[in-house]
Structure formats: structure tokens, C-alpha cells
Nucleic acid binder design. Structure first.
Lengths: 232, 232
DNA sequence: TCCTTATGCCAACGCCATTGACGTTGATGA
DNA sequence: TCATCAACGTCAATGGCGTTGGCATAAGGA
């Protein structure tokens, strides 16, 4: 075949799809983002993307080598969304907290993008820009380079990792979530204090928190530890 | 159809597969675990599982409602593996560190199981047992119940979340990983200090750490913060 | 002995990502 | 002006996936 290569230069020749749509990388990424937002991670498929674009599924492959390439482009875009409109306050701890929550939130609807961002470090522009910001905050706060890099790594991976986890919960249909909650409540309430004293003692607390994301806690703990390191 | 219901009572009547194998829930889970260990998360499919069992893929559905049910069973099994042979040392911090690493490691080859464990809290036996152990360590260390529950939640989700992330890296074919590493090294080395001073200053450190999991760092920071809370 | 039920197999459904072949277009340069 | 060529659209097909309906068979229980 004619080697479905994706050219790097900007395209100048265009032909509309059957529905009259003119495609670009940008348009495809934006459409994909909208689909993810509206239908969740499982809702983005080549076929449906093609449909949403008014084009054949295979047309997507003229622009991206495969779905992974597309998701990678989406992933980079999300870093841009995460820091959009943000500016440093001067308080490193508050700044990192804000950025952590923003990144976590941006990837919440796009867990597949989080997986790729973390596993396939490809140096895409928005990702690099975000890295620079985070490292800048840490070094500006006075962390020695080795510590700054270590904390940066833990910080960014933790935000992405929790996004994936929390996204899975979010993606469940409400009915399934309620059913699970019921089972859980039952199971934990039924455990006798003789065999499971600690669960029995804390069951109400456990149940009350079971639907919350643990990310804010984990983030705060990471920042508290970093702060202690800085002072110590 | 005859409603493919999975009976809850132990089965007594058995008919071997064409290959003479006699199936049980246990055998299916064990075979699936082996496939995950040997071929990674993407290597476990209903068809291949059937093949490995010497049975038709559809036979699996006589034992599990669907793939999710099977993976849930696997997930619970993994908690058992994680704490197998472990006993508390009396040092709560060292104990939690050990358990965190064990859980992270157990789910490393089974990220799909980690996703389900965290998103569909179903109160399966091994999971409950592990929860009891962790809560016991925290309450034994002197944490008030509210803190113990909060830390427990962050701790367990952190280990699962990082498993998913690290598993994605692990699953990449070595060639792809090396190619990515190359790109990364290039990108970061090429950034001028004028536009990206912080990356430029720490590039060697960044590159040196890029393939390591950030989990141990994040875990230690979480424990350090917990310890400070306890003392404070 | 007969009936029920558990459990096996097979074939099929509708989904998925991806690709090869082919047609059409617009820009380029002789 | 016009031939060439790359870009990029469609279509049809491939091989995989989870899942299910239909049917055959064997093990107990009556």
C-alpha cells in the first residue's frame, strides 16, 4: 500500500468529507476530546470518531498512525488545559496543590491518556511546559536538584495514577455503583467484632468515605512530607 | 436461552472438556493468573483462556457472568498473594511499607484487576482481610479512627494506582521503551536554558530516573507524613 | 427408569482497530 | 496549459474481541 505516513508539514490541500467537513489534526483532537467528555473513555472508538467527524473511520489513520498516536496527542493537549489560566502565587505548597488537583481533574475523564502520558514519555510540548513549571516551583522553593527531581516525579505520577483509578469509579453506571455500595455496606456491617475488630470499629467512617477520591489526602500528605524535608 | 446463571452452591456433577480437563472456578482463576503472569494484561482473553483450559471460550461463561466477574475473582486472589507469608514486625511504619510494596508488586502484572478492585468495592474475602490488617496496624500505632481511615484509604489507593501506572510501562515492548527513552533524552537535552532553565539544570537527573517507578518515593512520603501526624 | 440440571460445544452476532486498493482532488512546475 | 504527484477521502475486508442462543450429554435424584 501507499504507506499511510503522517506528514509533519502543515497540510495545504484539502478535500471535504462526504458530509462536507474539512478535517485537520486539530479538529480531530477536539472532536475526540468532546466525545471523551460526553461518552467517557469507552465511548471513543475509531468508528464513532469517524461518525462524529462525518467521515469514515479509516480516515483518522491519514492523520494519526493509530489510536495510540491520537490519544497521545489528546494527552498532551490535556496538560495545556490543566495549566490554562493558572499563575503562580508565590507559595510553592499552595501552587503545587492547585496544579496537582488541576492535573488530576483534567485527566479524570481521559484515563487512557493518563496511562499513555505516564508510560510513554515522549516530550510533547505541553507536557514539557508543565514539567518546567513544576520543577521551577520546587527549585524556587529551595529544594536541592536531586530532591526536586524526586518529588517532581512522585508528584506528577501520583496525580496521573489517581486519575486513572478515580476515572474507573466515575465511569461506572450509577446503578452499578449503588449496587456495589449496598454490598459493601452490608459486608462491612455484618463483620463480627471478634474476627474483624478494626473494621467493625471504624465501619461507619469507612462507609462514609468509600465514594470519595483519596487523591486530595495523598496529595496533602506528599506536600506535607516535602515541606518537612525542606525545613529539616 | 437457558439463562447462563452461575450457581452458588458447590458443583457436584462434572463433565470433562474435550481435552479431558475437569473445570472448576479455582482452576480457571489459576489458569488466568498464569496467563497474566506470562503474557501480560492484554494476553488474557476469553478465547485464549478457553484454549489454555482445553475448552471453548464460551465455557468460561458457565462459571463467571463475564470477564469482569473473572477479573474480580482474580483481584481478590491477589490480595491473598500479597499478604501471603507476611507477619507484622511491630514497627507500624516498616509494616505498612512492606505491605505497600507487596500490594504494588502483586498488582503490577494485573492492572485490570487493580482497576476493578479500586472501583468496584465488593467486599471479597481477601480484600476484607487485608483491610483489617492495615486498619489494625494504623489503630495499633495510635492513630485516632478518623485519621486511620483517611490514611488507610490513601495508602491502599496509592498502591493500586501506581500499580496501574507502572504496569503500563512494564507492558511496553522493550523496543518501544528504548525508542521513547531516546526521544525523551533528545528532547530534554536539546531544551535551551533560556526557555527551560529548570529542565536544563536537572536534565541528567531527570533522565537517570525516568524509568524508575515513583511509587517507593510516594509511599515513603505518605508514611513520613503519617508519622509526623502521629507525633504532632 | 426417567427427568432435571449442570455443563460442555458450536456457530453466530456485533463490536473493535487496522489495512490494502482505489478514486479524486489540488498544487506544482515544465 | 497540462501532466504529475502527493494528500487524503471511501470501501471492503481481516482477524481479533466479549458474549449468547441452541443443542448435546452426562450425572444424580425421583
Amino acid at each position: 500500500m501507499a504507506k499511510r505516513v503522517v506528514p509533519e508539514t502543515a497540510r495545504r490541500r484539502r478535500r471535504p468529507t462526504k458530509q462536507g467537513q474539512v478535517l485537520t489534526h486539530q479538529l480531530i483532537v477536539e472532536t475526540a476530546l468532546r466525545m471523551l467528555r460526553e461518552h467517557g473513555a469507552a465511548g471513543l472508538t475509531a468508528r464513532r470518531l469517524g461518525l462524529a467527524l462525518g467521515a469514515d473511520a479509516s480516515t483518522v489513520y491519514r492523520y494519526f498512525r493509530g489510536m495510540d498516536d491520537l490519544v497521545l496527542a489528546i494527552a498532551d493537549e490535556l496538560f495545556g488545559h490543566a495549566v490554562e489560566g493558572w499563575s503562580p502565587s508565590g507559595d510553592w505548597r499552595a501552587d503545587l496543590r492547585e496544579l496537582g488537583l488541576r492535573i488530576h481533574n483534567a485527566y479524570l475523564t481521559h484515563p487512557q491518556a493518563a496511562v499513555l502520558t505516564a508510560s510513554r514519555v515522549t516530550g510533547l510540548p505541553q507536557e514539557v511546559a508543565t514539567d518546567e513549571i513544576i520543577l521551577g516551583i520546587l527549585r524556587g522553593a529551595g529544594f536541592p536538584d536531586a530532591d526536586a527531581v524526586r518529588i517532581y516525579h512522585a508528584f506528577i505520577d501520583q496525580s496521573l495514577a489517581f486519575s486513572i483509578l478515580d476515572a474507573a469509579t466515575l465511569a461506572l453506571p450509577p446503578a452499578a455503583r449503588e449496587a456495589d455500595e449496598e454490598v459493601w455496606r452490608d459486608t462491612y456491617a455484618r463483620l463480627p467484632a471478634t474476627t474483624h475488630p478494626h473494621i467493625a470499629a471504624t465501619a461507619p467512617l469507612l462507609v462514609a468515605r468509600m465514594n470519595d477520591s483519596a487523591y486530595p489526602t495523598a496529595l496533602d500528605m506528599l506536600l506535607a512530607s516535602a515541606s518537612a524535608q525542606l525545613r529539616g
